[in-house]
């Protein structure tokens, strides 16, 4: 198909957003604003005093040792976890207990999980069309057309009628990406999207993410794929013990880390 090349085929970027995306990163608006965010599990402080601003269209890779609060942090951005102190603003919408704000934010933010979390009782097509039909109230035919475009984009249109259990891990994760994109989010969260995959399937998922980044999607990715980070990330955030230890472009993180802990961790994994 002629339109397989771009996100424009699948996700409509409004003109004003496109105009913003044409600017250099520094001149764009902040789509994610976190100020002094805290989160406790009982007495354990999982996220402490994290402040971060993410520009529209920016790709931020979040990494760090396990238990460092990186997953909890991105799960707070669509409120799978509630922040208990501080302030989170997503595309101008303040995260509060107001259900309307929450609904609006969840429409803005898509998420891809480590374990895919596809709905096993419905087909691939059904997985992708469910939320567009039920939340955005698209007619079925439109939702299905959208789903097929997205499946073509992630390279598996022929799997539409199958059930998730019949797909490989890599294919399932690509379906999960398509499912999140079907809500036409402004921001995509990736929570260790390749950690549950066999090595030969990691590439196909990373390719889909690469392609997505190239279209100007704002992405927050928790991942240990350092090759991907070096290539795609605009900035990298290193978390340790619940705190944001260092935030900077990949060049700084890899070649000239400012913090000892960052350096130590990179030495261990590279």
């Amino acid at each position: 198909m002629a339109e397989t090349s771009g996100v424009q085929a699948a996700v409509d970027i409004p003109a004003d957003k496109a105009e913003i995306l044409a600017r250099p990163l520094e001149e764009r608006d902040d789509i994610v604003v976190c100020e002094n965010v805290h989160k406790w599990f009982d007495d354990f402080c999982a996220v402490r005093d994290v402040s971060m601003r993410v520009k529209r269209g920016e790709v931020v890779v979040i990494f760090g040792p396990s238990g460092s609060g990186k997953s909890t942090f991105i799960r707070m951005i669509n409120r799978l976890e509630e922040h208990q102190q501080g302030r989170i603003v997503i595309d101008g919408i303040e995260m509060t207990n107001d259900v309307r704000n929450l609904d609006a934010i969840r429409r803005e933010v898509g998420m891809v999980f480590q374990q895919f979390n596809l709905f096993p009782h419905i087909t691939v097509l059904g997985n992708i069309t469910l939320a567009p039909q039920r939340v955005r109230h698209l007619p079925r035919s439109e939702a299905e057309a959208l789903a097929m475009r997205l499946l073509e984009r992630v390279g598996i249109p022929e799997q539409a009628q199958k059930y998730p259990a019949e797909l490989s891990g890599g294919q399932q994760q690509r379906v999960a990406i398509a499912r999140a994109l079907a809500m036409q989010p402004q921001i995509m969260l990736f929570d260790e999207p390749t950690s549950a995959l066999d090595p030969e399937m990691i590439k196909e998922v990373l390719d889909a993410m690469r392609e997505l980044a190239a279209t100007g999607m704002t992405m927050l990715c928790v991942t240990h794929e350092m090759g991907f980070a070096r290539e795609v990330a605009d900035r990298m955030a290193f978390f340790d013990e619940g705190a944001l230890v260092e935030l900077g472009p990949p060049d700084q993180i890899f070649n000239n880390p400012q913090e000892d802990r960052t350096k130590l961790f990179l030495d261990q994994i590279l």
Partner: peptide, 24 residues
């Protein structure tokens, strides 16, 4: 993870129950 995925997609609580949790 099923309810989390449903919430992340913007489904309300009762939609999650009726469409995801109950059928499974």
């Amino acid at each position: 993870g099923q309810t989390e995925a449903a919430h992340a997609l913007g489904l309300r609580g009762w939609q999650t129950t009726l469409l995801i949790t109950l059928p499974q």
